[in-house]
Design a protein around this nucleic acid. Sequence first.
DNA 1: TTGTAAGCGTTATCAT
DNA 2: ATGATAACGCTTACAA
Lengths: 334, 334
Amino acid sequence: MKKTITIKDIAQELGIHHTTVSRALREIKSVKKETRDKIWRKAHEMGYRPNRLARDFRNNRSNTIGVLVPEFQFHFFSKFISDFSKEATKSGFSVMVFQSDGKLKIEKEIIESLISYRVSGVIASISKEAVNGEHFELLENVGIRYVFFDRVPEDVRVSHVLLDNYQGAYDAVSLLIRKGRKRIAFLSTPDKISVFNDRFKGYTKALEDNNLPVKDELIVREGLLMEDGFSATQKLLKLSERPDAILAVRDEVSIGAIKCLKKAGLRVPEDVSVIGFDNDPSGIASEPELTTVNQSISKMAATTFELLLKQIGSKTFSFEKRVLKAEIVVRGSS
Amino acid sequence: MKKTITIKDIAQELGIHHTTVSRALREIKSVKKETRDKIWRKAHEMGYRPNRLARDFRNNRSNTIGVLVPEFQFHFFSKFISDFSKEATKSGFSVMVFQSDGKLKIEKEIIESLISYRVSGVIASISKEAVNGEHFELLENVGIRYVFFDRVPEDVRVSHVLLDNYQGAYDAVSLLIRKGRKRIAFLSTPDKISVFNDRFKGYTKALEDNNLPVKDELIVREGLLMEDGFSATQKLLKLSERPDAILAVRDEVSIGAIKCLKKAGLRVPEDVSVIGFDNDPSGIASEPELTTVNQSISKMAATTFELLLKQIGSKTFSFEKRVLKAEIVVRGSS
DNA sequence: TTGTAAGCGTTATCAT
DNA sequence: ATGATAACGCTTACAA
């Protein structure tokens, strides 16, 4: 194991002072070009690698952005993080990802950890147990900027980026109504999560605007997985009058619904139309292919990064809300 | 923005020395219980949060594990990272994820970055452009332990964890042959990636052991995406004699194949059987559901972490190979 | 059991 | 344009 080379080693070799080396390596103009070149050459020759730990410590700030999500196997989150991290890397940041597993307690621990790491900024999609965003205020106290995306606290008063969930659901239901559907079911989760609440509001509003009743029996909140979609649909099929369309808050749920419908001998979309949310890859694998409400994940990632970057390096916390338009991708299931 | 509390602040408040505070907070036995309690109480009262930057700097080691993958949208990688990171968190590590995008140049930069961060360890799945693992030796030079998983260099001589890709493919083909299939196609990628090479070897060996010819026309290397599976299958269907089974190296590719077959009016599995690799969620969405070679991702993650942990804190680099058994999940498509 | 002193590698500030 | 000095918060070796 070789000795680690520091700026002092380079300075010594060159017979100059290490602060000059530091300046040269950071491309500070006040260094003569000749010295600068000499230093760079020597640094390279000696295999110098900056010690970020020392640099971060000295600057009291790590060049890292913390990402806090409930869970990162959901396609939405993994794609988002992938895009976000490409974006952040371009600007010289590293990314640390933490999963709260939907638990408030873990979320709080992660926030402590983030502070302890003196990250440059944080983006977060909150856990379902977090009703408000109070515990994030700790970040403010120590001057760390943060931006919420997708799952935001109800009382949110910091910058955040959202899909227009309300509009997406409204449009999806409107489409179904235009196709003559009248008994439109809504499949969601029992958890109170902003995103899904908004989708529900869009659903009811569209029904009302078209003079259709909102029926409790058509609203089933089993959960967010494929099997939840399946079991929810089983319940629906036991009704005296079955639904003629289903809007589910996630594609996986829709796929479960389609499986259940087909198993019951019903045709999709002839007997029952199905629409999902998220444009998950499995929607394309499904037969028929799934109509879905699409959110441009890469745009969302870029916007989130933009809002965060705007705050990092600015003196004040700011409050800006960005809502991204949702678009319906019409495929075979509707 | 509040002043940050340090151990010196606590010490001052208590009229003791800050090294005692340091010791107490790290639960070092040589501190009297009484003092210890006093310190913890005060620390909590003052809202002390350790500065990890300072600690890491002083220890010349950050409590972080670097994860290097080609890409993390693939279900395999996002699930792996999710599981790995839960595992690592349990032992008090944080996780930093970097994507090479399959590019050697980026991979090298990431390695520099990892060194610069003095991470405690690294796990990596290498880019397709990396023929050997030479560039990882830099890590060794500075004493950072690393373990490869899934995509490993050809000449690998450090610890690594693999699926038994050879066996998985061998078993899949054997299954198809037992079902009477004789013209079994193989869909893969043109890139030389260890994982897929091994799957290919298993494929040919199984054919040979059953006295079936390995036919070039049945081997199509279009890529790893759904559309690649689709177009590869189109080519296969133009042959004078079509295949009666398809083994693809990823589930997504298989799904593309199934779509193409169905579009051509062929039945799956009656006319053509299809088997994939990875047990991707979309395999379940597909119709028929996809038979696939499954690798236990959580086991792989746990094993990778285990091998890494064994090396962190040990004086010597070690070389241990773990091969995880692959199992076929039989569903409708075969 | 506790205190003292030194130092990790870097950068900011001030002096030359 | 470059050098000298100090400091960031923490831990370790040594002394008391």
